[in-house]
């Protein structure tokens, strides 16, 4: 089969072939970035000058407690789940317990104006769902859980 005009010919060395396509994509990405900066940059800088650094700060009404609380809880949840899984490996028990605590904590973080009824719901949900999920996945489907 013809290899076509000279300027289209190309050969890729196998040992370096893992870089060929990533280089092309990185190149396109950078080109687009430059284009975006050129087209949007001036307007952005103008707005920044007008509004000062204030516009980069979170908008008023940003709920710091719930936002960073969620992030923190998720990180703690994942770390704890991984950590406790070494005590009872391949049983999913670590998942079960950390999920119960995590769900209760996240719900309590999110709930507005807790009442007895809401708290009962949270308790039922936080214990019930991980329990059902854990039982169904580990026993019935034999999934590996942390």
């Amino acid at each position: 089969m013809s290899r076509g005009p000279e300027f289209l010919r190309l050969s890729i060395e196998f040992d370096r072939s893992h870089l060929f396509f990533p280089y092309i994509v990185t190149g396109i990405l950078l080109a687009l970035l430059v284009l975006i900066a050129a087209l949007r940059g001036p307007a952005f800088i103008a707005r920044l000058r007008a509004g000062g650094v204030g516009m980069l700060l979170p908008a008023p009404g940003f709920d710091h407690v719930r936002f960073f609380g969620s992030l923190g809880l998720i990180v703690v949840y994942f770390v704890a789940m991984d950590f406790f899984s070494d005590f009872a490996p391949n049983t999913g028990l670590s998942f079960l317990f950390t999920s119960i605590v995590f769900m209760a904590a996240l719900s309590l973080l999110y709930v507005h104006g807790p009442t007895r009824r809401k708290l009962t719901l949270i308790a039922a949900c936080s214990v019930g769902l991980p329990l059902v999920a854990w039982y169904a996945f580990t026993t019935f489907f034999n999934l590996t859980l942390p």
Partner: peptide, 10 residues
């Protein structure tokens, strides 16, 4: 949402 979101994350 205070019940649904924790379920979704888990």
């Amino acid at each position: 949402k205070y019940l649904l979101y924790p379920v979704i994350v888990v």
